[in-house]
Structures are given as structure tokens and as C-alpha cells.
């Protein structure tokens, strides 16, 4: 078997194992959440008999191990169960939310990843001169401001004062693709600003590191322009750390944007998860947890594989 195929297969198997471990953690985690589902659903106004009835109805009295196994079995068969709080099919609700989350994340990624890498290259090209300093200053400032504040500021100036884009980023199936893009313009801007700095700085650092190498000197001595030295010789060799940080930021765009979802009223996964955690709706929390874990593990696996493929030393291990 070709060593690359073997390596990739190894990574896949490891990721699957990791996901299984994550599923156990998620299940245990939801079991030790303080508080009681029935109490949380019925709220302040619950009477004791209400609570007892609901608890029995939800099957909260069975042992944890058997609940875990039957849950895992259902998940493997694609059945995420029904929400305790509103009796809706979780798969259906999550499908809609996940689609939205992925849409927002990919729009933000399509803008931010190339932009970050381009700015990183530019910063290296003009290292320690004003473009480099300005790019670093602007991106570091934007990452240092809390994202909700950037959201509010953009909302105030762009949506309220100028009236260009919508402050409510509600998308639905009845909208055309361009209407959707228009609706999510502001959250995409905020997310781009938030993830830009991390990726840009990493690109800059990785390439600068490579720039010290002898072959770069050779390329320069050949008379290549600075930018093409960076783009053709330095960048391919710096790809591994860059891909890693890009994947981390993509994962963040999928699982970590609940604040942006709240500020812009965007119907994504984060808000869905938070609502159900506060109501102790365990099946939904578990389903969201396993999806988030899968996204994280999957993206990191992709990063690993790309690093291996991009790096001859890893590609041909001795």
C-alpha cells in the first residue's frame, strides 16, 4: 500500500475513535448538568405534580448506560431523536440550522481566508515598512475588540445611519441567493474582521520563517521578484502551519459564533444549542455536541492530511 494512503487511513481511523470518545464525554457531560429537565421546561410556575408527570413522560428514570447505548445506536442510524421541550424532530430542526450556519461560515471563509493569506503575503513583502505595520495594527485591533461590539458599531453606522444592509440577518428558504447574501452582509463583515488577524499573522510568521532558508536566497539570486519568491517558493513550504490555523478558524466560524448569531438574529446552530442547554433539553444538546465535535475533528483531520501531502518530509517518512 502506498504510504500516503496508509497515513490517510490511519488519520481517518483515529478521527473516528476520537469522535467516539467525544460522544461519551458529551453524554456524560449532559448527565452531570445541574438542574432538572422537567423543572427547566416548566419554569418558575411548575407545581410538584406537574414535575413528576413530565419526568415520567420523558423517561428520565432509566439507567444512564442503557440510555447511552440506545442513543449511540440511534445516532449511527441517523436518528437524533425528538426535542423534549417542543416535541420537534431534532434532525429536521438541526438540518435547517446547520445549513444556515454553514452558509454563514462559508461566506465568511470565502472572503476572509484569501484576504488573510493575501494580506499576510503583502506584510512579508513590505516587512517592517508601513504596509506591514498598518496591516498588523488594523487586524490586531479588530481581533482585540469584542465581536459583539464590532457588530453593534457596524450595525449602528451601516444599517441604522446609512441604511445599506439589514441589521436583522434573518434568512429563509423563500429568499433568493442574492437576498440572502444581502441579509448576511453585516455578520460576514464582523466575522471576517474577527478571524482575519489570526490567519494573517500566522501566514506572515510561517513565511518569514521559511524566508531564512538557503533556497530562498538562491531564488533571490536568480533574480526573481520578491513577490514571486514569496508566492512560488516560500508559500508552498509554509503551507502546513497556515492550513492548520485556517482550519481552526473555519471550525470557529462553524461552532463559535453564537454571539454574532444573537446580535444579528441569525438562525444558526449556536443559538439553537444555547436555548436548549438553558432548558436542559438533553437530546438536542447531545445532537449539537456530536455535530460540533464531528466538525472540529473533521476539519483538523483535513488540516493534518493537507499538511502531510504538502510536506515532502511527512510524505516520504523514513
Amino acid at each position: 500500500m502506498h504510504p500516503i494512503v496508509k497515513l490517510v487511513a490511519q488519520r481517518l481511523a483515529l478521527s473516528t475513535l476520537l469522535l467516539l470518545a467525544a460522544s461519551i464525554l458529551i453524554f456524560v457531560g449532559t448527565q452531570i448538568l445541574p438542574g432538572d429537565v422537567a423543572q427547566s421546561i416548566l419554569g418558575q410556575s411548575a407545581t410538584p405534580e406537574n414535575l413528576a408527570n413530565l419526568r415520567a413522560e420523558l423517561g428520565l428514570n432509566e439507567p444512564a448506560v442503557s440510555r447511552y447505548l440506545s442513543w449511540l445506536n440511534d445516532v449511527l442510524h441517523g436518528d437524533l431523536g425528538t426535542a423534549l421541550t417542543n416535541g420537534r424532530d431534532i434532525g429536521e430542526s438541526i438540518g435547517y440550522r446547520l445549513k444556515n450556519t454553514l452558509f454563514l461560515a462559508s461566506c465568511a471563509a470565502v472572503i476572509s481566508v484569501p484576504l488573510a493569506i493575501f494580506l499576510g503575503l503583502l506584510a512579508v513583502r513590505y516587512k517592517d515598512r508601513w504596509p506591514d505595520k498598518m496591516i498588523s495594527a488594523v487586524t490586531l485591533t479588530s481581533i482585540s475588540i469584542p465581536e459583539f461590539l464590532i457588530g453593534y458599531v457596524l450595525m449602528y453606522f451601516i444599517a441604522v445611519k446609512l441604511g445599506w444592509f439589514s441589521s436583522v440577518a434573518l434568512v429563509n428558504d423563500g429568499m433568493s441567493f442574492f437576498e440572502k447574501l444581502n441579509a448576511i452582509a453585516l455578520p460576514v463583515m464582523v466575522l471576517t474582521l474577527v478571524v482575519l488577524a489570526h490567519m494573517m499573522r500566522m501566514t506572515r510568521a510561517a513565511i518569514l520563517n521559511v524566508m531564512q532558508s538557503a533556497y530562498i536566497e538562491t531564488a533571490e539570486l536568480k533574480g526573481l521578484s520578491t513577490f514571486s519568491v514569496i508566492a512560488r517558493h516560500a508559500f508552498p513550504n509554509a503551507i502546513s502551519p497556515i492550513v492548520n490555523v485556517v482550519m481552526l478558524n473555519l471550525a470557529y466560524l462553524v461552532v463559535g459564533v453564537v454571539v454574532i448569531e444573537v446580535v444579528f438574529v441569525y438562525p444558526g446552530m449556536g443559538q439553537y444549542l444555547v436555548d436548549h442547554v438553558s432548558k436542559r433539553d438533553v437530546p438536542v444538546v447531545q445532537a449539537c455536541g456530536i455535530i460540533f465535535a464531528a466538525v472540529y475533528i473533521g476539519l483538523n483531520m483535513v488540516a493534518d492530511i493537507v499538511s502531510i501531502l504538502a510536506n515532502p518530509r511527512l510524505r516520504h517518512p523514513k
Binding site: V160, S167, V168, V265
Partner: peptide, 19 residues
């Protein structure tokens, strides 16, 4: 009915004429 739980977002939605 748009569910807007964030107070600032709610105000902005009214001011920009979306609700």
C-alpha cells in the same frame, strides 16, 4: 414576529425600519 432577544439589536431593527 421576529425573535430578537438582544436589546441593542431590537432597537436597531426598529430604527432601521425592519420591524
Amino acid at each position: 414576529i421576529l425573535v430578537i432577544n438582544d436589546a441593542t439589536a431590537r432597537t436597531a431593527a426598529l430604527q432601521s425600519g425592519q420591524v
